[in-house]
């Protein structure tokens, strides 16, 4: 049929899609919303203290700190990479901040800046190693730095705790602005910023392009290496911000904080619809997934369920969220 096409019929391409109910509702995010509603109903069923505004509001403080990292992690996973060093980066940034304040006696403001710089440098090192040694893969590089960063945290603080921060520092973890937790406001702001960055800017478009086809992206003039380094740096920076909130909430820090954070974060991103094979994902889905996992943890905590049950549930959710699409396509093939 291609053969007749040599003639010059002017061919036009539509630029509007006809409206389709199917397209509107056939989306992972609706599924996630249903799960979130189910989690909330479950919470109100098991505990009378769960489903009311103050409870839901303050509950966010329990889980939103690590959720900040989910945004850059989503970007990393969209680019077909992974970063399992973020938990260690949180620990190292926190320990650097605390020891600069307590041991070195520097002002807290400078310690906070140092914390952010530490996180960004950790991310930068990850990014540079991954870009310069492509044959190593992000798994191995971040595995190595995961051990290294936490190792440095141990070297700095040994098995001590460091704390005794100025009173105002507690604001990050416990403060409210207009009756809303400061952390929640930061999370919302970051969600909007990353939503715009990923879905409305050329930067985000290039991130998706890299995840779908790195070679074609490079051949089309996308600076793949540069973008990767920036995104890994963002992950480090957000890990440092998480360190500030977490340290503030706990009032002190130890080298073993934020162990296994990477798992929860990867689980949130995967549940939120970020494809672990790269190239797909939306910030809206990730945000809903954060609240699903978070409120589940909060609800289980309210009824004194063992926190280990939560481990199992996160693991199962992670597997289900990546397996369901695959099983669907397996069935279709048969």
């Amino acid at each position: 049929m291609e053969q007749k096409k040599q003639t010059y019929q002017p061919r036009t391409l539509e630029t509007q899609l006809p409206f389709s109910w199917k397209r509107l509702f056939f989306q992972w995010e609706w599924m996630l919303l249903l799960i979130l509603v189910a989690v909330l109903l479950f919470g109100s069923y098991v505990s009378p203290y769960f489903l009311n505004y103050p409870s839901l509001r303050d509950g966010t403080m329990v889980f939103l700190d690590k959720a900040l990292i989910v945004f850059p992690m989503a970007m990393i996973m969209i680019m077909r990479d992974i970063d399992i060093s973020v938990g260690s980066t949180v620990a190292l940034s926190s320990v650097v901040m605390a020891s600069l304040y307590t041991t070195a006696g520097l002002p807290m403001e400078i310690a906070i800046v140092a914390c952010l710089v530490t996180g960004a440098v950790c991310g930068l090192i990850n990014g540079l190693l991954i870009v310069k040694f492509k044959e190593l893969s992000a798994v191995i590089v971040t595995l190595g730095t995961m051990i290294l960063y936490r190792g440095i945290a141990y070297i700095i603080l040994e098995d001590q705790a460091a704390g005794g921060f100025p009173e105002w520092f507690g604001f990050f973890g416990w403060g409210y602005v207009f009756g809303i937790p400061f952390l929640l406001i930061v999370f919302a702001a970051l969600a909007i910023v990353f939503g715009i960055l990923l879905h409305r800017t050329t930067f985000g478009r290039k991130v998706f392009a890299i995840g779908n086809n790195p070679t074609a992206s490079r051949f089309s003039g996308v600076r793949v290496d540069r973008i990767k380094v920036i995104v890994f740096m963002l992950a480090g920076l957000l890990a440092a911000i998480t360190a500030i909130f977490l340290t503030s909430r706990m009032g002190s820090t130890r080298p073993n904080i934020a162990t296994m954070y990477e798992l929860d974060i990867i689980a949130m991103a995967a549940l939120g619809g970020v494809s672990t094979a790269g190239g797909k994902g939306r910030v809206v889905g990730v945000v809903i997934a954060v609240f699903i996992i978070g409120y589940l943890q909060y609800g289980l905590g309210l009824i004194n369920m063992p926190s280990q049950l939560f481990l199992i549930i996160v693991g199962a959710l992670l597997i289900l969220s990546v397996a369901i699409p695959k099983i669907g396509s397996l069935m279709k093939r048969k």
Partner: peptide
């Protein structure tokens, strides 16, 4: 492998090199 992002629309492929 090198020229196109095959899972993308024509639109996004055509404009990929010219986003700036």
């Amino acid at each position: 492998e090198q020229g196109l992002v095959v899972d993308w629309s024509i639109e996004k492929n055509v404009t990929l090199a010219n986003l700036s």
